[in-house]
């Protein structure tokens, strides 16, 4: 509990300190160019509240599926060694079914960018 309070306080103070220090030390001479949005050196075009390409959604969905896979894979991999080859086969079947799915979306061209 005590170490938690110390970590928490130092963490919060570190963030606040960074902002306060830059506010105190940095010179304040704003101009139009300085206040514009910085995006890797590119000139920003249009607003940021635009509709994004729906293709991103498919990637997100695939990511969720393989994220859930990790949930079940992690505890089984932890004990795989103590079970020997049988566990290896069991986990391999689990993974193989999902790799089928990955090859399916690959084949369908869902991973291609058009």
């Amino acid at each position: 509990m005590v170490d938690f309070v110390i970590f928490f306080t130092v963490g919060v103070l570190f963030v606040i300190g960074a902002f306060v220090a830059s506010w105190l030390i940095a010179p304040h001479k704003p101009s139009a160019a300085k206040l514009s949005t910085y995006e890797c050196g590119e000139e920003p075009v249009g607003g940021s509240w635009i509709q994004f390409n729906p293709r991103y959604y498919l990637f997100a969905l695939a990511f969720v599926i393989f994220d859930v896979e990790i949930l079940f894979l992690a505890p089984t991999l932890l004990v795989m060694r103590s079970f020997g080859f049988v566990a290896f086969i069991e986990i391999f079947i689990f993974l193989f079914i999902l790799i089928l799915g990955l090859s399916y979306i690959w084949r369908k061209g869902a991973l291609e960018w058009m």
Binding site: L61, I65, V68, I93, L95, I97, L98, G101, Y104, I105
Partner: peptide, 11 residues
């Protein structure tokens, strides 16, 4: 695993 496969194909 089969359920996740079905979800992936469905997506």
């Amino acid at each position: 695993s089969l359920l996740l496969l079905a979800a992936l194909v469905g997506a």
